[in-house]
Design a protein around this nucleic acid. Structure first.
Length: 852
RNA sequence: GGCGGUGUGGUGGAAUGGUAGACACGAGCGACUUAAAAUCGCUUUCCUGACCGAGUGCGGGUUCGAGUCCCGCCACCGCUACCA
């Protein structure tokens, strides 16, 4: 062979790894274990370049850990349940199962050429009965432990598709697929009691030192802990059965600024009024109909309905406040009722202005400040303000102090009590769909809701279903639904709801430790492999997936499926950025955009043009999207340049947490660089040059520095920095006049340092240079500390902070010596121009600064 | 609205408070070649012929020394949202 030929090299080394069973993970006490996991993919049918980046990062870590003597677990699976499979079945008449397994096979075929160090013997799909049967076992254990319960809940119901929709599937009040107006329906559904663990899930974040602060913050905001006062207003003229309105507030210090009470249209009191008053009913119906999208809410005007009811202020029974039903009050937060304090809340201010309600300031920025407000005054709680209508604490205090004082005062005076609330609500897991894990319970007329016997698991999805009629096919299946009650044996009905697919992904990391076991986990294996040492995935899963997984790990511990030490299952988390690509667009005559494929566009003179010379607008760094014609298909890239080029490119240039832009020129350049490495090595194998000792030393010194820098780069997820360093080391090697023996040694180290990123080329080069065995198993090179120390250092010399000269001195020269040498320099004397230095700062090995 | 992040050459981006622009892309020049491609070498922040000088979004500050720390703005991006 005379040139670098990736297709040949890559196939050969992948076969060698497979033959050696190189990635099979087997527990062993000889080495420390290391579990690296990338978020598993949804089997859409095509891998995306973003997957390549995600899995390459995991692979770099995995291969580096193998080289540093770890026993590595690096598994792969498929998040295989979910709507797209059913949508495909509805659209083209196939079966979700066939569609899914076909996609899995296709994607596996696309992934294998990437040469990832995956233990494929542990592969699983969440739609395998082997997997979801164990998930059903978990469900039953959770149910028994009280971690799951049933309650009525309002859902978005699509009357045409006869299905429940997630919030994000509702667009402008209509179902995203059917376009039908979505109704709010109350259904009895299953819930995980995740809210019981709010405090623990919040506190647990503190220990996650190797998680991005951003993700922890997002979770913390989502859990939403708040401290406030809950109390009730006495109703003066309430309807039958209603003598008070319970409210929750985080600002009890503003109680004397109350000017109205607002209740949600879904509040029991509103519902009571609705029954007798058509006007109230009309208002509530109108509000409920309003769009639920963010934009609609943003623009929605504050609207209220004066019920005519009055409440008494808790501090002054003569003081009465009106009760409004208002469109901006949510039933499912707090108590579904608030007291409005227009002076210190923007929403209440807008509302009060519209309905001409009093605006009473309770605190002001200063004692002299104007009491009449033109806008809500809402400083942060940490700010110290003057309470002109304070009732607890000092006149001058921070909002936080005032809240604490107000709660204490109210409790002492029998007005409500301080409470801690969480925003986090219980996790509804019921989905009225076919392609999901069946909920293993039975409805019996005599026994009620009865859990299935574990012996009957898995409750398998029936294959003989059709999607030609809207609704859940399980609901109308002729036989599957009918079963015997596990308790009394009488004829009963199976639950036809299936589980939210977030359930599937909440414990797969644990299942990977014993993927074929006939229990959800095996204590021994879980104890050995857990926790995940490094988890890698997209920031889009920062909240739900990671929070649910943390909850599941705790619940699995409570039910004996995981050790307590695995309650926080992911020791370290890394969230990687996307791979983007420019969009090329021109305008049609009617002004609508036309998107062009990258291969149709030529770049020249700083502009982009079509073949006919039309100038093209370039939108850089856009998310890849089929409709914008800017998707780069990894399969094409691997065919054209090889997997090593794709892997190297997605890691280079940009820091891993940031987006990286795929450019054809960049891929081309990467490929050339890898070919250059191959050529350098090829030349070394045919050379017999005798170098000089100085060149040998210089090359070896840079080699040891490269070992240090690349090792640090990989360990700190600085893959782009590691790659930059490898370029530099390659340049040094190429230009080196060192002897063949030393250049061979340097080239072998280069191969090792490159091996996590470009494993195939590394193996090839290693073999060419006469390395023994697989480079994969060769121990990671160690930097020799003695080679990292220079005898001399070059220091920049600044005068008043401006660089004016430099000096090379012995590395261990003391400050006095350096100072004398510096002052003697002609360049320094010239720049000083006769002035006397006031002070000379010598930072050893760094810099000299002369102050005049 | 809230929370968070980011602003550095033509481009992607480097820089434990210590020589700003590593490394790469692109561009330019040269060598090799009949020629091109490939390859190799050199140049490439701005101003200047060169020196000098200026320079990390803008304005201040701390420091012997600031891209980095602090204060106040501006712009862009992400997440989140009537959460009482």
């Amino acid at each position: 062979m005379t040139t670098y030929s990736p297709s040949d090299i890559e196939a050969r080394w992948q076969a060698a790894w497979t033959a050696a069973d190189a990635f099979k993970a087997v527990p062993s006490r000889d080495k420390p274990k290391y579990y690296v996991l990338e978020m598993f993919p949804y089997p859409s049918g095509r891998i995306h370049i973003g997957h390549v980046r995600n899995y390459t990062m995991g692979d770099v870590i995995a291969r580096y850990k193998i080289a540093t003597g770890h026993n590595v677990l690096h598994p792969m699976g498929w998040d295989a349940f979910g709507m797209p499979a059913e949508n495909a079945a509805m659209a083209s008449g196939g079966h979700p199962r066939d569609w899914t397994y076909k996609n899995i096979a296709d994607m596996r075929d696309q992934m294998k050429p990437l040469g990832l160090s995956i233990d494929w013997s542990r592969e699983l799909a969440t739609c395998d009965p082997e997997y979801y049967g164990q998930q059903q076992a978990l469900f039953l254990d959770f149910l028994e432990k009280g971690l799951i319960y049933r309650k009525k809940a309002v859902v978005n119901w699509d009357p045409v598709d006869m299905t429940v929709l997630a919030n994000e599937q509702v667009e402008d009040g209509r179902g995203w697929r059917s376009g039908a107006l979505v109704e709010r329906r109350e259904l009895t559904q299953w819930f995980f009691k995740i809210s019981d663990h709010s405090e623990a899930l919040l506190a647990g974040l503190d220990g996650l030192d190797n998680w991005p602060a951003k993700v922890k913050l997002m979770q913390s905001n989502w859990i939403g802990k708040s401290r406030g006062l809950q109390f009730s207003f006495g109703l003066v003229n309430g309807p039958e059965g209603h003598d008070r309105v319970e409210v929750y507030t985080t600002r009890p210090d503003t109680l004397l600024g109350a000017s109205f009470v607002g209740i949600s249209p879904d509040h029991p009191l509103a519902k009571a009024l609705e029954r007798d008053d058509p006007e109230v009913a009309a208002f509530c119906a109108d509000v409920r109909k309003g769009g639920t999208t963010e934009e609609a809410l943003e623009k929605a005007e504050k609207r209220g309905f004066d019920t005519g009811l009055r409440v008494r202020h808790p501090f002054d029974t003569a003081w009465e406040l009106p009760v409004y039903i208002a469109n901006f009050i949510l039933m499912d937060y707090g108590t579904g009722a608030v007291f409005g304090c227009p002076a210190h809340d923007a929403r209440d201010f807008e509302f009060a202005t519209k309905y001409e309600l009093p605006i009473i300031a309770t605190f002001l920025p200063s004692e002299e400040a104007e009491e009449h407000l033109t806008d809500a005054y809402v400083p942060t709680k940490a700010e110290r303000v003057f309470y002109n209508r304070g009732f607890a604490g000092e006149a001058w205090q921070t909002g936080a102090e005032a809240v604490d004082a107000a709660i204490a005062f109210c409790e002492a005076n029998g007005v409500g009590h301080g409470v801690t609330k969480f925003r986090l609500r219980d996790w509804g897991l019921s989905r009225q769909r076919y392609w999901g894990c069946p909920i293993p319970v039975v409805h019996c007329d005599t026994c009620g809701v009865v859990p299935e016997d574990k012996a009957n698991l898995p409750i398998e999805l029936p294959y003989d279903v059709s999607f030609d009629v809207p609704g859940n096919p399980l609901d109308r299946h002729p036989t599957w639904r009918d079963c015997a009650c596990p308790r009394c044996g009488a004829q009963a009905r199976r639950e036809t709801d299936t589980m939210d697919t977030f359930v599937d992904s909440s414990w797969y990391y644990a299942r990977f430790t014993a993927p074929r076991a006939d229990t959800p986990t095996v204590a021994e294996d879980a104890a050995y492999w857990m926790n995940v040492d490094q988890y890698i995935g997209g920031i889009e899963h920062a909240i739900l997936h990671l929070l649910y997984s943390r909850f599941f790990a705790r619940a699995m511990h409570m039910t004996g499926h995981l050790p307590a030490s695995a309650s926080e299952p992911f020791d370290a988390l890394f969230t990687q950025g996307m791979v983007t690509h420019a969009i090329y667009t021109t305008q049609r005559g009617d002004g609508r955009p036309v998107y062009h494929y990258p291969e149709e566009v030529t770049l020249r003179d700083g502009g982009a043009y079509l073949a006919d010379g039309t100038q093209v607008t370039v939108i850089p760094s856009a998310k890849m999207s089929k409709s914008k014609n800017n998707v780069v298909d990894p399969v094409n890239i691997v065919q054209q340049y090889g997997a090593d080029t794709a892997r190297w490119f997605v890691l280079s240039d940009s820091p891993p947490e940031r987006d990286v832009e795929w450019t054809a020129a960049g891929a081309e350049a990467t490929s050339k660089h890898l070919a250059r490495v191959w050529r350098i090595v090829d030349e070394i194998t045919r050379s017999d040059a005798v170098g000089d000792a100085a060149a040998d030393q210089a090359l070896l010194r840079d080699m040891h520095r490269a070992i240090r820098d690349v090792t640090l780069g990989i360990e700190s997820f600085g893959f782009n920095a590691a790659i930059a360093r490898l370029y530099a080391f390659t340049n040094t090697l190429q230009r080196s006049q060192a002897s063949v023996a030393v250049r061979r040694q340097a080239a072998m180290v280069l191969a090792q340092l490159m091996s996590p990123m470009t494993p195939h080329l590394a193996e090839e080069v290693w073999a060419m240079l006469g390395g023994s065995g697989l480079i994969l198993n060769a121990p990671w090179p160690q930097a020799d500390a003695a080679m990292l120390v220079d005898a001399e250092v070059t220091l920049p010399i600044q005068i008043n902070g401006k660089r004016k000269a430099e000096i090379t001195v012995a590395a261990d020269a003391d400050a006095g010596t350096v100072e004398a040498l510096v002052l003697a320099l002609e360049a320094v004397q010239r720049n000083l121009d006769g002035a006397t230095p006031k002070k000379i700062i010598v930072v050893a090995g760094r810099i000299v600064n002369i102050v005049v």
